[in-house]
């Protein structure tokens, strides 16, 4: 009970803090915030990424949307509490020592949760806009064609909180949601991942969708 309340208060404060700092606004370009099962896949440059997506989702959707996060960072201590209780994160072990990440993710999808995932698998700190995708996104999409896979582009967060930094700098950010994708019949892994990648890149600000 107290735990639930604390989680709620922390959740509201995190969202309020993210708003005050980055003035983040959602841009629902290719779909609307609807209460249906979805997988939001986004570019990953900072620990603040899923916080921003979570912040711009309407309250009702927040509760049903779980970020997929690495247990080595979000597993223990205060971060563990925030990860588990506030964001209800799906924690995966990237080394695969205990369980394959993909099976943990599949299980969460079976339970009806919407997910936030980062198909690059790790934070991108280089100069290229996106790292190569892991195959997980394709495996998820081909296993569950009934779920909408929504490409998301988070802009500017890399500058707010670069990898390895602790304090965030206030800069304006935006979160753009694109048109949902699905694996087409006969589409192979590389073709789907390329399509997903292009869909994300097309959402970058200053590039209007065709």
């Amino acid at each position: 009970m107290i735990k639930r309340l604390a989680a709620r208060v922390i959740g509201m404060s995190v969202a309020g803090f993210a708003r005050a700092l980055t003035g983040v606004l959602p841009n629902w370009r290719g779909c609307l915030p609807e209460a249906r099962q979805r997988v939001y896949f986004a570019n990953h440059a900072s620990h603040g990424d899923f916080v921003l997506i979570w912040t711009v989702l309407p309250h009702a959707l927040r509760r049903a949307t779980r970020p997929v996060a690495a247990v080595d960072y979000w597993g223990g201590g205060v971060r563990g509490f925030i990860g588990r209780e506030v964001f209800n994160a799906v924690l995966v072990d990237r080394s695969g020592a205990t369980r394959e990440p993909i099976s943990v993710i599949m299980e969460a999808m079976e339970q009806g949760a919407s997910l936030i995932i980062f198909p690059e698998g790790t934070r991108n700190t280089g100069d290229q806009p996106l790292l190569p995708f892991k195959s997980g996104l394709y495996r998820m999409a081909s296993a569950r064609p009934d779920i909408e896979f929504v490409p998301v582009w988070i802009d500017n967060i890399r500058r707010v909180m670069p990898k390895g930094e602790f304090l965030p700098v206030p800069l304006l950010c935006s979160v753009t949601f694109g048109e949902p994708l699905a694996v087409k019949p006969g589409q192979d892994k590389d073709a789907f991942l390329t399509e997903a990648r292009d869909a994300m890149l097309a959402l970058r600000p200053g590039r209007s969708a065709a």
């Binding site: 670069p162 206030p170 800069l171």
Partner: peptide, 15 residues
């Protein structure tokens, strides 16, 4: 300042 800096180029070392 936030608006201004959001539009300009900053480097990681400027954090």
């Amino acid at each position: 300042l936030r608006e201004f800096l959001s539009l300009t180029h900053t480097r990681r070392g400027d954090h």
